[in-house]
Each structure stands twice: as structure tokens, then as C-alpha cells.
Simulated assay, not measured.
Amino acid sequence: MFPLFFDPTFVLLIPAVILAFWAQMKVKTAYSEYSRVLSRKGISGAQAARALLDQFGMYNVPIQRVAGNLTDHYDPRDRTLHLSEGVFNSTSIAAIGVAAHEVGHAVQHQKNYAPLKFRNAVVPVVGVGSSLAFPLFFLGLLFRGPLLMDIGILLFVGVIIFHLVTLPVEFDASTRAVKLLGDTGILGSDEITGAKAVLNAAALTYVAAAVMAFAQLARLLFLRGMFGHRD
């Protein structure tokens, strides 16, 4: 039997790795390009987010600065919108697009958007499952324990479900963001093109993550078929 961590099944991951690398390059390129293009109205990402939140009466949703680059997120647990240092004070088209995307998540939360509710509900379970899936599977592989391998695969299926439900959540948030920016006039029609480019590139990273998860599942199933029988 080949070594567990240097086996031919890694070839199944190569297309997903290439896609993930390409997606990261796309988002970095788009964000870098439109971070240098300032919006004509000159409002910051935080100001844009505040204006959009107020459009929906979400005056009680605070906006906080968070450290890091592209670490922006909306936390449904405390209904707080977090904007990274490069977005909070920036008046660029990229910053406003990213801020509007996070507002899109806040709007989803307010409107009880079903995929978001489901994702929020499964996050704790998926977190535990993702941390146990590979150790259990490879323990089963090492000791010829098909039951452990099957449990690992089942846990990893939960990760797949999480990635699948994340796609509509993220795409919907971007769609809402673009519409809000156009409806409110925060960005002009030509500026929205740049915001779309940034958000579309970011969406590719979620697609790449889903593809990687499926490739990992294929690898586990392949190994299960080859070595999942007791001697």
C-alpha cells in the first residue's frame, strides 16, 4: 500500500487546486484594480453600508472595523456588520461593492432568507464534522476499519452540503448589493460595472471551494473502494 499522504489519488485534487489558485488571482486582481478607482460621490465603504442598512430600517445594526484584508463579514449572531481596514474608510468602487455585499447578507437575515437560515443552523455541526472527517477516515484506512472510513465520509458529506448552500447565499447577496447600489444611486451605472467585477471574482472563490470539496469527496470514495475491506 502506498503512503497515506503521498498517494496517486492526489491527482484528483489537481484541477480543483488550479481552479482555486485562478479564482484567488482573479479576486486579487479585480480588487486591486478597482481599489484604485474612487467613486464619484466620494463616500466610504462604511458610509455606503450605513446608508444601505438605513434604507431597510436596520438602524440598530452597527458597523465595526475588523483587522485584515478582505475579512469583511456580517455576523448574524449579534447582527453586526464587520468591514476590513481596506474597505471601512476607502472611497473606492471595490470597497463600496464589498460593503454592499455584506449589507446584502444583513438584508437576507432580516428577510429570513431560507438558505442563509439553513447555513447558519448547520455551521456548528459542520465545524465539528469537518475537523473529524479526515482523522476518522484515515484512522479507518490505516487500521482497515471500514466503519470509521464510512463515518468520516458521512461527516464530509456535511461539508459538501455546507458548500452547496453557501453558493446561493453568496450569489444572492451580490445580486442584492448591485441592485441596491443602482437603486440608491450610490454608484453610477458605469461604476457598478467595476463593483460587479469585484463581486463576480469573489464569487468564483466559493465555486472553487465547492469544487475542491467534491474533489476531496471523490478521493475519499476512491480510497474507500480500494482499501475499505477487511483482510
Rank of each mutant, 00 (worst) to 15 (best):
L154A: 14
A20Y: 10
G68R: 10
H73G: 04
G104V: 02
I93N: 06
L221G: 08
Q55L: 14
V87F: 03
A215G: 13
N120M: 04
I192H: 00
V11F: 14
A218D: 12
I96E: 14
P135G: 06
L139G: 14
Y113P: 01
M25V: 07
L142Y: 12
I151F: 04
L13T: 08
G129T: 07
L12R: 07
L147V: 15
Y31T: 13
L19C: 00
A94N: 06
L204C: 04
A51L: 13
F222C: 12
S90M: 03
E102Q: 02
F2C: 08
A197C: 07
I186F: 05
F156K: 01
S84F: 04
I93K: 02
Q216F: 13
I63L: 10
R40E: 15
Y31W: 04
V122F: 03
K41Y: 04
I153Y: 00
P62Q: 02
L52S: 03
L221K: 00
Y113A: 01
A51Q: 15
A49L: 07
D7I: 00
P124W: 06
P168C: 06
F2S: 13
V198H: 11
Y34H: 06
I151R: 02
G57I: 13
F56Y: 15
T71R: 10
V128F: 12
L154D: 08
I18P: 14
T205W: 00
K26G: 06
Y34P: 02
A209F: 01
H101L: 11
V122W: 08
M149S: 05
F10A: 12
G97K: 03
N89K: 06
F21H: 09
